[in-house]
Nucleic acid binder design. Structure first.
Length: 423
RNA sequence: GGUGGGAUGGCCGAGCGGUUUAAGGCAGCGGUCUUGAAAACCGCCAGGGGCGCAAGUCCCUCGUGAGUUCGAAUCUCACUCCCACCGCCA
């Protein structure tokens, strides 16, 4: 969330930023409550000060065996008045928090202003689209031919949007996870963590999925417990340090985690129904950074490069796009997407999203640090990026590696795992 | 799932209705001493909020939420979490 003081002092900037992101922001409602809260707090504090002083006087008199009934009555009356004010505050504060939690992070000034996907800014590309001397097939046909993905079994066991990797498909999945984790931990300095796949509402709030993403039915909720299946490892991993005050020497923190991700994709029915472009459960290796505020935009660039390194090692052509204001996520200040080329589908697919959340998640999750042992705690900046999402990486491997005879040439780093060059 | 024990500041730990503005210790930071270090000694060491240009001042927080009381870390109730044992279990 945003700093309440910042909203109070810059209401117009908040309205503008939210509008650029095509998001609502009840700034007026929030500030009206804020004004009332401060007025009541001032009054209540004065009364409490008086009550504390009088109570102390009661104690003094009673110890001196004097009568204190008149004072007791005055304090009782004060108590009644204080209680009314505190009750009003108890009603206002959750409302303020709720409004604040629903105001999105503001886009960084460098973010291109735009209305749609068409306004995203091309940053760079790597490699080139491969040439085929035959018509490249979409991955679902390749996978069916090889018998490595079973859609019917996924639908039978769970339902539409759930798939089963089978045989070499399952093994390829596992090899990719290992490959990505090893790359990030041994070459890029990330600490591997393996977090829970279910999280509580505090964690969902900390990274910004609650309330809005949850309310729009994006997340799976566990019946009977107040727990959610994680939509991304960003949630458990960023929340690892929730409500902590870190020491300056601990920063920056780099975490890499493999987890499955669960998304209801409630609003996306009908899109990408064929293949594995959009499924309800998918695997992802996620990178999370917790850094000093002044470093976050430089850290975003290296995070992006760390994610790109995976595609480079796999020899897959991709492009990097900077999201325009309207295409960014709720909690982001700046976001790059990496899009890999899928020749069978004839389009680029988002395999990674790398974002700087500035202090927005840190403030929600209470992640702070001290520059010096006695310095005032400051909020850290958090970042995360996929490194990478598995299904679309698999799509790119299948569609880019396909050969005329129906086999698929494996990227070089995966050949050792399989002991051969093709699937 | 059952039974019992516990939750106090970075850590340990007093405290059981009013000089607690939370003792004391450890760790940390600053200083004295020392060639330097250690030891010893002195000092500083939670977070949030209101008002104020500031200096400052006041309020809140002893797991969370209610309650009793003039006054609650301290008493009552509920809940949460942690630990131990039992049951079940990969």
């Amino acid at each position: 969330m945003l700093d309440l003081k910042f909203v109070r002092e810059n209401p117009e900037a908040v309205r503008r930023g939210a509008a650029l992101k095509k998001q609502e922001a009840d700034v007026d409602g929030l500030l009206a409550l804020d004004a009332e809260r401060r007025q009541i707090t001032t009054r209540a504090d004065e009364l409490k000060q008086e009550r504390n002083a009088l109570s102390e006087e009661v104690g003094r008199r009673l110890r001196a065996k004097e009568n204190a009934d008149d004072l007791k009555q005055r304090v009782r009356n004060l108590g009644d008045e204080i209680k009314k004010l505190d009750e009003r505050l108890a009603a206002i504060e959750p409302q303020m928090r709720d409004r604040l939690l629903r105001i999105p992070n503001l886009p960084h000034e460098s973010v291109p202003v735009g209305e749609s996907e068409a306004d995203n800014r091309f940053v760079r590309e790597w490699g080139a689209k491969p040439n085929f001397d035959f018509e490249p097939k979409p991955h679902w046909e390749i996978a069916e031919h090889l018998g490595i993905i079973n859609f019917e079994q996924g639908a039978k066991v769970t339902g539409s949007g759930f798939i089963v990797y089978s045989g070499a498909g399952a093994r390829l999945q596992r090899a990719l996870i290992n490959f990505m984790l090893d790359l990030h931990t041994t070459r890029h300095g990330y600490r591997e963590v393996y977090p829970p796949f279910l999280v509580n509402v505090e964690s969902m709030t900390g990274t910004g999925q609650y309330p809005k993403f949850v309310e729009t039915d994006g997340a799976y909720k566990v019946e009977g417990d107040e727990l959610y299946l994680i939509p991304t490892a960003e949630v458990p991993v960023t929340n690892l340090r929730r409500d902590e005050i870190l020491g300056d020497p601990e920063l920056p923190l780099y975490y890499a985690a493999y987890t499955p991700c669960f998304r209801r994709e409630a609003g996306a029915a009908g899109r990408d129904t064929r293949g594995i472009t959009r499924v309800h459960q998918f695997d992802k290796v996620e990178l999370v950074k917790i850094v000093r505020p002044e470093d976050s935009y430089a850290e975003l660039e290296t995070l992006l490069q760390n994610a790109e390194a995976v595609l480079q090692a796999l020899g897959l052509h991709y492009r990097v796009m900077e999201m325009c204001t309207a295409e960014m996520g709720f909690s982001n200040a700046k976001q790059y997407d990496i899009e890999v080329w899928a020749p069978g589908m004839g389009r680029y697919l988002e395999v990674s999203s790398c974002s700087n959340f500035t202090d927005y998640q840190a403030r929600r999750a209470g992640i702070r640090f001290r520059r010096e042992p006695k310095a005032k705690p400051e909020f850290v900046h958090t970042l995360n990026g996929s490194g990478l999402a598995l299904p679309r990486t698999m799509i790119a491997i299948l569609e880019n590696g396909q050969q005329a005879d129906g086999s698929v040439r494996l990227p070089e780093p995966l050949q050792a795992v399989f002991g051969r060059e093709t699937l």
